[in-house]
């Protein structure tokens, strides 16, 4: 008894909106696209804390890279 496709998309959109708002509230500085990917990962069973660690790691990597390129 799956709901109609359009309805599902709408509710998914709504959920994502809520999560995005929450993310802004928490000042995570994740853009909507990244957040969507992350949520998808979590839905497929990835541990949220581990994923957070990944995000942090990648950010740091980016920082190093940018810093390196800047200098």
């Amino acid at each position: 008894m799956a709901p109609p496709e359009s309805e599902r998309i709408a509710s998914a959109q709504q959920t994502l909106d809520i999560l995005h708002e929450m993310s802004q509230l928490l000042n995570t500085q994740l853009d909507k696209e990244t957040l969507t990917t992350c949520v998808r990962l979590i839905e497929s069973g990835v541990n949220p804390e581990a994923l957070a660690a990944v995000i942090e790691e990648l950010r740091r990597e980016n920082l190093v890279r940018n810093g390196g390129s800047r200098s």
């Binding site: 709901p3 509710s11 998914a12 809520i18 928490l26 994740l30 979590i42 949220p48 804390e49 957070a52």
Partner: peptide
């Protein structure tokens, strides 16, 4: 927001998502 999220039927691991956000934010 949280109560609204919990009403949503789509996600199965809502708390995991919230936890993810929290972790990212705290880090």
């Amino acid at each position: 927001l949280l109560s609204r999220l919990l009403d949503q039927p789509v996600l199965s691991r809502k708390h995991a998502c919230v936890q993810f956000l929290q972790s990212v934010s705290s880090s």
